[in-house]
Design a protein around this nucleic acid. Sequence first.
DNA 1: TCTGCAATTTCTGTATACTAATTTAGCTGC
DNA 2: GCAGCTAAATTAGTATACAGAAATTGCAGA
Lengths: 245, 245
Amino acid sequence: MARPSPRIEIAHEALRQAIIEQALKPGTKLPEDVIGEQFAMSRTLVRAVLAKLEAEGLVDANPKRTATVAQPTLAEARDVFEVRRALEAEAVRLVAKRWQPAFADELDSLLRQEDEARARQDERVSIHLAGEFHLRLAQLSGNALLERYLRELITRCSLILAVFGRPHSSDCAIEEHSALITALRAGDADGAVAIMHSHLGAVERRALLGGDDEKPAALGDVLSHYAAAVTARQTTKPSKTANQK
Amino acid sequence: MARPSPRIEIAHEALRQAIIEQALKPGTKLPEDVIGEQFAMSRTLVRAVLAKLEAEGLVDANPKRTATVAQPTLAEARDVFEVRRALEAEAVRLVAKRWQPAFADELDSLLRQEDEARARQDERVSIHLAGEFHLRLAQLSGNALLERYLRELITRCSLILAVFGRPHSSDCAIEEHSALITALRAGDADGAVAIMHSHLGAVERRALLGGDDEKPAALGDVLSHYAAAVTARQTTKPSKTANQK
DNA sequence: TCTGCAATTTCTGTATACTAATTTAGCTGC
DNA sequence: GCAGCTAAATTAGTATACAGAAATTGCAGA
């Protein structure tokens, strides 16, 4: 595993959290020196952090311009969900294969927390725990690489939800997680895989709001539409949304 | 996509090639300044290159010690193959779904090249083309993320072969690739997936079977070869081949 | 000859300086 | 007022300097 320097890791984690919690909105500029100032580190280290975030698909970074919080396109979102479905099905398959009763307790515990958070309308915690459930499942697969990939995919899904999802959609239904545990506990591997498949299908549908047809849900597209009515000169780079300076 | 600087990309590609072609053996130390000298760049850039290679699992990098060409453990090798199997099955599924006759020509062409290289004992090209076939398949899936992941996995498999495989075994059997094309052409999606599954099972068995032998190589010599394209454009200064043990 | 410690040489970690490109702000003339 | 140009301010690209940790070497004592 990579542990180049704790400081890099700290900043990386902090920024990742800020992005997936939507404290930093997609499109927000991330100048190196501003970040460096915040975390009391030089641009050299900030650069490493941004490189990691870019590799994870959480920031867009073009050659000579300021990095920004990523704005996934609809096509990218589809790709992410497609790969996630395949890998998470595999994860369930592996978990079923090496199933132990203790696993059920683990997952049940997460489920209960999730339920409570949902009950008290704590959206931030709720969203976080929904991801946590899937991540824990990946860990239980016993395949470290699979876990790494799924962590990345689950994180990106959070970002996708921020761009395409409607404001108050919770991405995971508790009953679906519950059904999965039941199937696993019963030793029904194929059933569990099927449940995960349909569950992720449902998550994707909830997240993307539309079918597989092209849908102009991107913030930039919407804004450019409105901007076009006012001034018909900005055709290429319309997204000039909130950023802090 | 990331294109921070062509120079970084060039060095990255060169090192990756050197590693998967086993010109740099697993465990070989990769000091930043030696590499920087070879590619005529400062350690700052070398660092970025090494970070990328580490993220791909091609080099091991611990906090305060010199990076080395990765030496995958057996457990890691298993994980890589497991994930690769899952993703490559998905890729085949997708390719089958959007199948077009032109795809067959593409793949056939690669297969033919592969066959020729095999016939004339050109091992370097042969190994490269075997990977290329799988990579092309991933591209035809139309899912860019899946392609990225598979590129990484296929590359790592080459490295795994270097560590665990017998010295010069070719990892893919041509007939298996051929059978896959036949199934796809016939529109037999499930059959194609099954073939891919068993094919990768065979690849894994071949890869994880067998012993290893030792062969020393001077880092400077190897790199000067791979960096030739780069240094040619630089000032014609006598590149001193650093002593490596 | 072997072992352990100290001196020394290699390296990496990180900040900073300097350059070049990109964006922004001001102009100027239509 | 608006298009287009130029100057000024931001901001990324890259090299380099320097501090400090690891590896290596050399030497003394057993």
